[in-house]
Design a protein around this nucleic acid. Sequence first.
DNA 1: GGCCAGGACACCA
DNA 2: TGGTGTCATGGC
Length: 218
Amino acid sequence: MAELAETYQKLYSRYGPQSWWPTSYGLRPWQWEVCVGAVLTQNTGWRNVERALANLAGARCLTAVDVLKIPASGLQALVRPAGYFRQKAQRLKSLAELVLAFGSVGSFLRHVTRERLLAVHGIGPETADCILLYAAGRPEFVVDAYTRRAFSRLGLLTGNESYGQIRQMFEAELPRDARLFNEYHALIVRLGKELCRKLPNCIGCPLRNSCMYGREVG
DNA sequence: GGCCAGGACACCA
DNA sequence: TGGTGTCATGGC
């Protein structure tokens, strides 16, 4: 499966560095903003997440302590643009509780385990891996809907693999390097946004003229 | 008006 | 264990 390393090189050549994760709303510390974004982006476009982050910043709800202090109804109103606002407000409070159980965001990121994150109601495997990779800087590969779609299109996945199977596939072949995993996931999302969702053999596929494997995609 | 977006969980067979 | 329904907003 050397294709995964080769695919990364081709995506990087095509799109260049993506430099995820954007943190520019002033939540503190910036790693907490990544954690909040990871929850808010669940099944939601990033533009709507940005509206919610701007609301939080505007209301000076900047830290995990602030999230615990604010009434649920107030937090719901702030995150409303990101959708599922009742669920996500509760999930942010649960995550803030876990963070503060470690004393600080820094301590939380150094010591929290993946299992401890997954034990939080509303934190699933992708959200947990996003937090570990993008906030804690740990080499945990993030799998999402784009990964399934793009690599199924390339014939490297059937589309029926579990989250853990896909994650293991990437982590087994690639060097465990957080910067690599960071860029790779972001590049996959960039590619995924260009792939036509409705037509598996779409002639407009961006891979058509620089196909990873020297053949038509589909 | 329908479809989709950087998921997770409850419920059921 | 796998399939299905639910949660919700905003852009196109």
